[in-house]
Design a protein around this nucleic acid. Structure first.
Length: 105
DNA sequence: CGGTTGACCAAGT
DNA sequence: GACTTGGCCAACC
């Protein structure tokens, strides 16, 4: 039986490049509502490059947290990475959020 | 087992 | 648009 966070990582690996998901969607896909626990799991994220934690955003299309995966505390880095994947940003929020969101089919 | 914390969410002010 | 409040659930002490 995998831990809650490992299941979150597993789902996150499913997210294709150029797509993003929300903490809420992940929690919902796991059959729970622990949005916050997802964030905590991402923060721990031992599978750093394998699990694209930068592809997880807030339900508002905003960036949410992201400390830069133990690098710096600059959300612009996360935005920059997502832009490289083809995601359009409008300031600190995703422009075409509804087109890049991935709902764990 | 109770209390605190958290990369959250939704609604109200 | 920014801040506050209440609520949700898992992890940690």
């Amino acid at each position: 039986m995998k831990s809650f966070n490992e299941r979150a990582y597993d789902l996150l690996r499913e997210v294709p490049k150029g797509k993003v998901t929300t903490y809420k969607e992940i929690a919902n896909a796991l059959g729970t509502s622990a949005y916050r626990a997802i964030g905590s799991a991402m923060k721990k994220n031992p599978y750093a490059p394998s699990v694209p934690c930068h592809r997880v955003v807030s339900s508002d299309g905003g960036i949410g947290g992201f400390n830069g995966c133990k690098e710096g505390k600059d959300i612009t880095r996360k935005i920059n990475m997502l832009m490289e994947e083809g995601i359009e940003f409008n300031g600190n929020k995703i422009k075409n959020f509804n087109d890049v969101i991935y709902r764990f089919i």
